[in-house]
Design a protein around this nucleic acid. Structure first.
Lengths: 148, 148
DNA sequence: TATAATTTAATTGAACTCAATTAAATTATA
DNA sequence: TATAATTTAATTGAGTTCAATTAAATTATA
């Protein structure tokens, strides 16, 4: 009983730690599949946005990915260098940087579509569990989205 | 229907992405509390191990935190510089680096114990949901632990 | 016992993450 | 309209994160 005051400091009692560890371990599983596309995980989720949206500015992209320009600027420059996106300032508002997928970027989608299939089941959860995990994560994230 | 083949590439259908975003957002919530202790999140979870174990080598520490020496070496050097741990080679096996908490490191525990209390509820989940989330994350992590 | 294989940390290099600052453009206000 | 405040990305610097390599120590094998 004398040590009860520190129970809350035990790794096994944390919620954030398994979240953090889990996130990194799952991303590691992506690597061999993404290497084939010459994409890092961050570049991959960025391309996912472009495969859905075609065109978006840095601020909106940041909201979707929970990333700021400090992270996105080098990622977008790298994707531009690979020829997957174009970057240009908005005519209406020069502060805004528009980013648009290229034809090459669209073509990459054909190869990328195999990645989710290859990753399926890597989490080792039943479908119902995966859905519940997704729901819980969305609930946590929506709480943060509110306080912005 | 023509676009169904790409459903799996939509951000909203991913499991890894919310895991990754959630992990970073929760860690961000820690920052103001950890700033008061002059610890980063990585340094904090590392200290958590020492508050439980007192002494551990780099390899065992890495297993607990899912981190390798490339990450841990600079973290441990930084914690040593702050005076929270001591590093020394094992007498039995010179390859093994032992790391041990100092008296100063033990004292930090008194301040750190307030952190979990301050973070409680930040996830915005019911207790039962938090427990279920924890269970699901552990299940995913245990799947990875097997394949090592 | 010599040599080979393995183990352990450290190092290196590329990329990410984020807080804080900067600079340019735009909008609001005096 | 001038000036102030705000917005948007880029930059900077510190700290991870990780794959790959290196070096030293230990263990296994010829």
């Amino acid at each position: 009983m004398s040590d009860m005051g520190y129970e809350s400091l035990k790794l096994e009692n944390q919620l954030c730690f398994p979240l953090y560890a889990c996130s990194r371990e799952v991303i590691k599983q992506y690597r061999p599949h993404l290497d084939a596309l010459d994409l890092t995980y961050t570049q991959y989720i960025t391309m996912m946005v472009f495969w859905e949206e075609k065109k978006i500015n840095v601020k909106e992209l940041g909201k979707k990915l929970f990333l700021d320009s400090g992270t996105l600027t080098p990622v977008l420059k790298s994707l531009e260098k690979k020829g997957y996106v174009k970057r240009y300032r908005s005519k209406e508002d020069e502060r805004v940087l528009m980013v648009e997928i290229t034809e090459t970027g669209e073509l990459l989608k054909e190869k990328a579509v195999e990645v989710p299939a290859k990753m399926a089941g890597c989490a080792g959860l039943e479908l119902a569990e995966a859905i519940e995990l997704r729901r819980l994560l969305d609930k946590v994230l929506s709480g943060f989205a509110e306080s912005e």
